[in-house]
């Protein structure tokens, strides 16, 4: 498949980059690792005139942790770089667990954390070639006015299909976003809009520059469980991330549970923390939270497998992730 014609701009600084984005606005797209963008361009899901290549911006590739500032990961840090950071698994178990499941090693060597947090939402009626989509008359998200997943509806259900976002949600992360007017910080949970068509709160003239995790999250136990057919390459059909602080008496001090691939956004399970805090492990408690998880996750026919099965697995994986985190203490520092 060919690529559309475009120019590539190579900024030398973040300021350069946001100036370029500001200048070209809707004509421009950011490219870093290319693993998501290039296939999407080949399918003509987008036809930007300009690509702003932020990959060479070394200042954006930094991975740091300090007890005061917490975790800082620059947007162009590759997934492999994060995984291979020696202290990552001990300090941020859920993150290492999630990133280790992304695609395969070749893709992780290229893919960046910024790209993973800004993935396009996926749907099998959408992630298809120009010919394929045309043969159908397009869909709500692109070139058409019908949703093939929920016909009659005017809402796009294309699913959030990234692995790192639920882990960062479970770690209460914040994003750093740059534009010509300066830098703003936004809690990750407010970044995702749960709309398959308009997935993230990022203006066309803004650039995601970093993700931050508060220092007190370091050392949290956690795990990510991913439903997929193959043990590599596949994007999630459902994903559950759990991060938790458990005291020496085995009492949960703080916890978050987040889901992926079952909604147009990665989502925190509402009330999960409230249910868990101050409690000791019990299967009934875990089942209760798992039940809350399937109230949050609403899988539809946007991907393979069946919505019923994926919903089932959200329940099973939530319980198992809680059990593994609580009882086996994965990632306890």
């Amino acid at each position: 498949m060919t690529l559309p014609a475009f120019r590539v701009l190579q900024p030398r600084t973040v300021e350069d980059a946001v100036r370029m984005l500001d200048e070209h606005r809707s004509d421009a797209m950011v490219i870093a690792g290319g693993t998501d963008v290039i296939p999407n361009l080949q399918m003509r899901l987008f036809t930007p005139r300009v690509l702003v290549d932020v990959k060479p911006l070394r200042e954006l590739a930094v991975i740091e942790f300090s007890a005061r500032q917490g975790l800082h990961i620059g947007a162009t840090a590759t997934l492999t770089h994060i995984l291979e950071t020696p202290w990552m698994r001990d300090k941020f178990a859920v993150l290492a667990s999630a990133i280790g499941t992304v695609a395969g090693p070749l893709q992780r060597n290229m893919g960046t954390i910024g790209g993973n947090l800004c993935l396009e939402t996926r749907c099998r009626w959408y992630n298809q070639s120009h010919f394929w989509r045309q043969s159908l008359g397009g869909c709500l998200k692109k070139d058409g006015d019908i949703c093939h997943v929920a016909p009659g509806g005017k809402f796009c259900w294309a699913a959030w299909s990234g692995d790192s976002a639920p882990a960062f949600l479970a770690l209460d992360a914040e994003l750093e976003i740059a534009s010509l007017s300066g830098t703003r910080r936004v809690p990750l949970r407010e970044f995702y809009k749960n709309d398959g068509m308009d997935r993230i709160a990022l203006a066309r003239n803004e650039l995601l520059t970093a993700v931050h995790v508060p220092a007190h999250m370091a050392g949290r136990r956690g795990v990510y469980q991913k439903l997929r057919v193959r043990d590599s390459i596949d994007y999630p059909l459902a994903g559950v991330a759990v991060a938790m602080e458990v005291d020496s008496a085995g009492i949960c001090k703080d916890a978050r549970v987040a889901l992926s691939a079952v909604n147009p956004a990665p989502m925190l399970v509402t009330q999960a923390g409230e249910s868990l805090i101050g409690r000791k492990w019990s299967l009934e408690l875990a089942e209760r939270v798992a039940h809350a998880a399937i109230q949050t996750g609403k899988p539809l026919t946007t991907s393979g497998s069946t919505p019923v099965y994926r919903r089932d697995m959200v329940r099973v994986f939530t319980r198992r992730a809680l059990e593994e985190t609580w009882k086996n203490g994965h990632g306890s520092a």
């Binding site: 395969g104 099998r124 298809q128 070639s129 193959r230 590599s232 390459i233 994007y235």
Partner: peptide, 14 residues
């Protein structure tokens, strides 16, 4: 599923 991403021939780990 006309692609190697969606037509899932086995890879090494499974």
């Amino acid at each position: 599923n006309p692609s190697l991403l969606e037509y899932r021939i086995p890879a090494t780990k499974e």
